[in-house]
Design a protein around this nucleic acid. Structure first.
Length: 410
DNA sequence: CGAGATTCATGTGAAGTATACCTTTAGGCTTAA
DNA sequence: AAGCCTAAAGGTATACTTCACATGAATCTCGTA
């Protein structure tokens, strides 16, 4: 019975034609064939990197700019072109792109180097090897023939904030030891104040060249959206005013084009699902809500169990004590958390660690935790939930489910 | 009344520990000559 | 004897714990007006 129903569903799905002509164009990893409004920056990058084609080491390059200003796309675009030309002419140029923000992939020195080595085709276990050894493997994989490696480290500020600047120092230093090859590093950072964190020596070697990406203004975002929309959607599938509205949303967020594109894509998906013939303005509003929801749900969902439990404890306190208008402090949180541990079948963690977890949840934006001094009564963090109120219930049930599941198992 | 000392509850850095995983080595077993 | 498998030994990164000291404003203390 069920299958019959499903058959119908899929058939219907096949018959309703999609609003999209090519959805890939709107995905965040897509690198367009032409970058709008970034000619100047791309030229600069190209000039800096061009020596690679003569097998000279290009200067290291540092790129600043807020999220969604086309940093990553410009760099990828330029390096792809170089790679292509290099391939056609048999010039040994290799490009590796690594996003340092991704947890469990490149957020420590070991993992970063391991990831680079993997990109060079080496198998590196997730743990167990000495870090020197990993450097060695990487070194050998690189130096066995003459080549130029262009290493793109996206969101490098995240990495350095977590692990210090030693990695970068090592990477820049390795050049003098390489006999055949040379590495040139492109660092990309969202944080304009980032240079304060790093050692001046590292800084000077890393940013031999610097490029700053200004935010797009609303008109530029509209251009970009139009261009992409014309590729992504079928003709006349987008209602008047949808694109300006998308652009306006994004311009409000300091000109974040990535956000605008995501908004447009999700709006398209929603329109399709509601069997609308065109993407309308109302879909944009829905999309904005959905994106926010998905993001939070996803972040919460992918947290380790202990983090989830800590978060859940915060929920409980909020529900319980709201009448008393009490603030949430670390000590209270720890008590609740400890009580909850056996229920979830987890071994309680120390208060020291909880402090770190709270700090990390703060970084993720799920809560806000401010260190305050209560004078005579000590010093603590004042914790508040940072989740929009219309999502609180959803997240809470999600947490309850995740933790309850664990309960059954034990 | 105000400057400085005190105090509390927790922040925070450093060092130590447990766990999970890796490679190497050695012993035991099987197999083929 | 050679080859293969398994278990033990020796080593590492990471997440967490333990230890110890740092923080910073409300409160207390005490000298002074």
């Amino acid at each position: 019975m069920v299958s019959k129903k499903l058959n119908g569903f899929f058939e219907k799905f096949l018959q309703t034609d999609s609003l999209f002509a090519n959805k890939k164009v709107l995905q965040s990893v897509y690198v367009p064939n032409e970058m709008e409004h970034r000619d100047e920056q791309i030229n600069q990058i190209a000039n800096i990197l061009a020596p690679a084609l003569k097998v000279d080491k290009p200067s290291n390059l540092f790129i600043y700019g807020k999220t969604g200003t086309g940093k990553t796309a410009s760099v990828r675009y330029t390096t792809e072109q170089i790679h292509k030309v290099a391939k056609e002419n048999n010039i040994p140029v290799n490009v590796i792109y690594i996003n340092c923000k991704l947890k469990k992939i490149a957020d420590t020195e070991y993992r970063l180097i391991a990831e680079i080595a993997r990109a060079l085709g080496k198998e590196i276990p997730p743990t167990g090897l000495p870090t020197d050894e990993v450097y060695n493997i990487f070194f050998k994989a690189l130096d066995f023939k003459e080549q130029i490696l262009i290493l793109i480290l996206d969101e490098i500020d995240q990495l350095i904030k977590r692990t210090g600047d030693e990695v970068i120092y090592n990477l820049t230093r390795i050049n003098s030891e390489l006999k055949n090859s040379q590495i040139s590093i492109i660092g990309i950072s969202n944080d304009l104040m980032f240079s304060n964190y790093i050692d001046p020596r590292v800084k000077s070697s890393l940013s031999e060249e610097e490029i700053i990406f200004p935010p797009y203004n609303a008109l530029q975002i509209q251009d970009i959206l139009r261009k992409r929309a014309s590729l992504a959607f079928k003709k006349d599938a987008v209602d008047e005013g949808v694109i300006p509205k998308c652009a306006a949303f994004a311009a409000r967020e300091h000109g974040d084009a990535r956000r605008a594109l995501e908004l447009l894509r999700v709006a398209g998906e929603l329109a399709e699902r509601s069997e609308s013939k065109i993407v309308q303005i109302k879909h944009i509003d829905e999309a904005e809500e959905k994106i926010e929801k998905d993001r939070i749900i996803d972040v919460v969902h992918t947290q380790p169990k202990q983090f989830q439990l800590v978060l859940y404890s915060i929920f409980l306190i909020r529900n319980d004590e709201q009448n008393k208008k009490k603030q949430i402090f670390t000590g209270d949180l720890y008590d609740i958390y400890k009580d909850l541990c056996p229920k979830a079948g987890l071994r309680p963690i120390t208060q020291r660690r909880l402090s770190d977890i709270v700090a990390e949840l703060d970084m993720l934006g799920l809560i806000t935790a401010k260190v305050i001094s209560k004078g005579r009564f000590g010093r603590t963090r004042e914790i508040n939930l940072g989740i929009p109120s219309h999502l609180l219930n959803k997240v809470e049930t999600l947490l309850a489910k995740e933790l309850e599941f664990n309960d059954k198992k034990n």
